[in-house]
Structures are given as C-alpha cells and as structure tokens.
Design a protein around this nucleic acid. Structure first.
Length: 316
DNA sequence: TTCCAGGGGTAGA
DNA sequence: TCTACCCATGGA
C-alpha cells in the first residue's frame, strides 16, 4: 500500500524525525542511508503494519509505504496510517511564529533555516505518556531497553512479520499485572504506573482525547497530566511539549547541567524559567534548540549518538 | 561496593 | 510549599 501526504512549506523531514530522542525508541527506527523513518503502526488492538516514511525529492510530500495491510479493510488501514504519520510528524502544527522569533536572535537563526521544532512524537498520546514515564530516573540507554521490551513483549503483532510489533495499546496492557510488567520488561517501579495507566484508559476512566484537546488551557492540561500516577512536574511539562504546548520547561538533570555548564552556576527552576520567558510561548523549543544543536556540533548527527544517550557520559 | 540516571510518591513539618 | 526518604534497575 502506497500513500502520499502533502507537507507544509516549513517542514524538514530529517529535522522533524531526528531532533528528539523518540526516533530511537521502538517501534521507530531511522535509516540514515535511505533517510527513512521505519515504524510499525497499530491498526487496532490485534494487527499492526510496518510503515516506511520518506520525503519526496523536492520535499513537498511524504511517500509512505505500508506492508501487509489487510485488503478487506484497506480504507480503514489507510486512514489509521495517515493519522499516525500526521500525529508523529506534527503536520498540523504551524511553527512560523517561532521561526520568526528565531530569525531575530543570532544564536537561533539556524533553527529557522533548518525548520527546527517539529519534534517527533508517538502515534498516540498513550504511547507518549508511557515513554515519558520510562525516561524518569534512568539512563537513556535503559529507557531504550524498557521501551523495546514493552514493544517486543506486549506490542501489536504484524501478520507475516513475526519480528515486528507496534506499540502496545492500552487494551493490550490492561489486565497485565504490574509484577509481570516489571519482570518481563525490567520497568522497575514504573511497571506499577504503566499498569495503572493502561487499566484506567482501557476501562474508560481516563479519556486521553480530552487531554489532547488543543482548545483547553495549558495550565488545566498540566494539572490533569499531574493526576496520572508516575507523572510529576518534569513529565507533565514534557508531555505538554509533546501535545504542542511549548511554554513549559521540562526541568531535569540534563537541563540543570546544561545551564550550569554555560553559566558556571547551578540554576533554580525559577531562574531557568526567567532565562527563557522572553521566548514565550516557545520556551521549550528555544531551550531544546540550544541543547540539541550543542550536542550535534560536538558529536555529529544525532543518529550517531542518540542510542547511547545524551548527558553526562557523552559530554565528559 | 557505591553512585546515579532526561524523577516521582508520600509523609511530615 | 518544602524537605527527607524511599522507590527498581543496570552501567560505570
């Protein structure tokens, strides 16, 4: 099955895929030689499909190739794949106001030139929440392993492709005990949080569509995200970013270290907010550009260092 | 063996 | 609102 998707004029494919660590988290994979994003999209709770995404030569559209889609439900499969790709690459977002701000700041002009800002996310908000929980208080390498374990063990299978699975849906994880998630996926105490989240979403108690509603205030969204067990200030801010709200800084050890290295002083969360408040409402993107471009300058393209992880070890 | 990682929950003040 | 303590896991 082949699809084409028209791209917005300020879109850059590699920048969108490789500017955030999610491109190395299962079921995603980046092929630097072919400049292709390979992923697995769950069509429902029981069947997934391998998807290969590349930009056209002129950069005007995406060419999407999907294997194994069921012929009898081709229209539904097509819609599910389009929806997933559109969400992952944020094709509906308009970042031109952020790029206008960048053009006025010498250190950020390159961000506008390379159309930085569409940071890759998951095919669903459930996937994003689980992945963010898996980043908390572990090395990035462990995050990569935990997510791979979740997908390999409980992911949505592909017909005819036994080694390929899509990210597990809430329904697939619901009813699996926290102890089993811990044991089979090395999630540690995060297994409790993920088991509870899956049960609440699958049971209808927690409606993630409400959280994804772009018309609601960011403060309300952040407060509701904090109600999810396992989601604190850092995770809520990061999830706000993944939902297209960039005004909250996700303060973690990485950000504190980054600013401490530049200023020589350990910043408080309030000081960090003051440093970036002139970028409102794009505080997170301004910070992320500085962090990411700094790593890329020192260590080369992100696909060469992202699996091993950003942070202390690579910067030493 | 000890420390710590892209923190979070809970209790107590 | 702040602090102290605990929470699994695995690499250095």
């Amino acid at each position: 099955m082949r699809l084409t998707m028209r791209l917005p004029p300020d879109f850059a494919f590699q920048t969108a895929v490789c500017s955030h660590g999610f491109f190395v988290l299962a079921p995603n994979r980046w092929d630097p030689t072919r400049q292709a994003l390979q992923t697995v999209v769950a069509l429902d709770d029981v069947q997934a499909v391998v998807v290969d995404v590349r930009a056209s030569r002129d950069g005007a559209k995406l060419n999407v190739v999907a294997d194994s889609a069921r012929a009898e439900t081709a229209d539904a499969s097509r819609a599910a794949i389009r929806h997933a790709v559109r969400r992952m690459l944020r094709l509906d977002e308009d970042l031109s106001p952020f790029h206008r701000m960048c053009r006025r700041v010498p250190g950020h002009r390159a961000a506008a030139r390379c159309r930085f800002g569409r940071l890759l996310r998951g095919a669903s908000l459930f996937e994003d929440i689980v992945k963010v929980i898996c980043t908390c208080n572990v090395t990035w390498r462990q995050t990569v392993r935990m997510v791979a374990n979740l997908v390999d063990t409980f992911g949505v299978p592909c017909a005819g492709e036994p080694g390929q699975r899509g990210f597990p849906t809430p329904q697939r994880l619901a009813g699996i005990s926290a102890a089993e998630l811990r044991r089979r996926c090395s999630l540690g105490y995060r297994g409790d949080y993920i088991a509870e989240l899956a049960d609440r979403v699958a049971g209808g108690e927690l409606n993630l569509d409400v959280l994804a509603d772009a018309t609601r205030p960011t403060d309300t969204l952040a407060r509701e995200l904090r109600q999810i067990r396992g989601v604190g200030d850092y995770a809520a801010a990061h999830l706000c970013m993944l939902l297209g709200r960039y005004e909250r800084l996700a303060v973690d050890t990485e950000m504190v270290r980054f600013v401490e290295q530049r200023t020589g002083r350990r910043p408080s969360p309030a000081a960090l907010r003051r440093m970036y408040n002139h970028w409102h409402p794009y505080e997170f993107l301004a910070y992320w550009w500085e962090l990411w471009t700094g790593y890329t300058d020192r260590h080369g393209p992100s696909h060469e260092w992202t699996v091993a992880g950003v942070g202390r070890r690579i910067t030493q």
